[in-house]
Nucleic acid binder design. Structure first.
Lengths: 259, 259
DNA sequence: TCGATCAGGATCGCATACAATACCATTCCT
DNA sequence: AGGAATGGTATTGTATGCGATCCTGATCGA
């Protein structure tokens, strides 16, 4: 890389052309929030599988593309690695995480525990407006069901995010968002190609239980629902460990391996 | 073989837990692990209240004291802020977090959810060796009960960490460790001065329930236990000291050399 | 032919440099 | 005298430079 010709001091910057490649621009170039933007961009790219599991993530290239220095990229990668979306090996750089099946099981277990808590906290406490919002969301899911695979998957995931946000517990939101992200990554690796993860009917059942205020039933429904997601989408284990190494070259052959 | 520490200075024989600290000095000289050392040093200092809630954390002062550049301090502070132990305001720097009562409630709620999951996962699956280890730990707690306040608190916290580690679920371990840290901070602010957080008898009851294999009872016991911890929340003071002097011991304990 | 040794380049780890901002204590004007 | 303007200093935000490490490919010897 050349000693860069892009200097950031610019009263009329043309910088907007390089930072947003993700559709609607949230525009967050405030001081101290730029690393967060990088983080969100990478996170989104990973979840949407624009960056496949195992793919290398060189600091220079990312910084170049996003218009920031390696420092900020580094910060974002560090955070992603804590969250399990990125693997960070000393002196070897970062790559999109490739969770083992064992890690996958761990994530789903924790997710079930967390979302059961969500169900319990929400049971009997859902306002009419919240229930309506969920109902509308479920209808959108139904509409997208056989028609748009990726959209359907995205909506199914968002249902759970909407739910946890209604608890008003910020920490719980963060944890559920994190496990959801990791689940997306896991399903991208081990999931069946076009299975929508969540049965919409189960979502509707859950809403009913929450409105009824039956805490235990709601929790059990959520539990079974997530259990069903695992059994529906996950393929039975074929190899125990180090699938990573087996599939590393495979992912690379998609066109981004270093020779 | 046991290293007889006869002529070795051992001022605080605290860290006896697991593979955590190998011997006297953890030696942070590995590449990429130095930021982690800074993180651990700060984390420990915050939890032990060497750094009180609200205290300012200037990057260069910390870097000076710990013998690293601001870059690494920044990385550590960033991580701590994600975990809620440090507050990070744009252009205003970092300070030890001062959780509101509402945030405190959120943390305890999530903790109850997580640890109930721990109890359920462990019920009926505890090996004899694990039960013995827990039993030994409880005896240590009893020994320290009226004698050593801080030690008692530390041991009570470690019991929960030991438990979650026995699940073998790495993600769950991380989450429980995080909420535990935040609970320590919260109790430092709102808790009674020297109340040991956990009733030792409740720990023993829990072990019994886990051995019996009664998943439901174990979960309820854990729930009740943590609820009891919460019900000991009141008001506390705040002090202000020089950060440089406070960090000395923590630099040494992580193998970092002050300048 | 094949394995080992060793450049050359790419990339990372970390410190440091420099600009931007906030903080503080004056000074100046009314 | 009191409040606003102002300059200096402390601290943060970000980029960049330099040495270290690893990876790749080529040369050499058996």
């Amino acid at each position: 890389m050349r000693p860069s010709s892009r200097n950031v001091r610019n009263p009329k910057p043309t910088a907007k052309s390089r930072a947003d490649e993700a559709g609607a621009a949230p525009q967050a170039s405030q001081p101290g929030q730029r690393a967060l933007s990088v983080y969100r961009a990478l996170r989104k790219a990973i979840i949407e599988q624009a960056l496949s599991p195992g793919m290398k993530l060189p600091e220079d290239a990312i910084g170049d593309r996003l218009g920031v220095s390696r420092t900020l990229v580094r910060e974002a990668l560090g955070r992603l690695s804590i969250e399990g979306l990125v693997e960070l090996k000393p002196n070897r750089g970062a790559s999109v995480a490739y969770p083992t099946l064992e890690e996958a099981r761990d994530v789903f277990d924790v997710r079930r525990g967390l979302e059961r808590l969500v169900a319990e906290m929400l049971a009997g406490r859902l306002t009419r407006a919240q229930a309506d919002q969920l109902e509308r969301h479920v209808r959108m899911e139904e509409a997208a069901l056989g028609r748009d695979g990726p959209e359907s998957i995205r909506l199914a995931g968002e249902f759970h995010i909407k739910l946890v946000e209604m608890t008003g517990n910020a920490l719980l939101v963060r944890y559920v968002e994190e496990v959801s992200s990791r689940c997306s990554l896991i399903l991208a690796i081990y999931g069946r190609p076009h299975s929508s993860e969540c049965a919409v009917s189960e979502h509707r059942q859950l809403i009913d239980a929450l409105l009824k205020g039956d805490s235990r039933q709601a929790a059990d429904l959520m539990d079974h629902h997530l259990q069903a997601v695992v059994s529906r989408a996950l393929i039975a284990p074929r190899v125990d460990r180090d699938i990573r190494d087996l599939l590393g070259p495979y992912a690379a052959s998609e066109g981004l391996s270093p020779t």
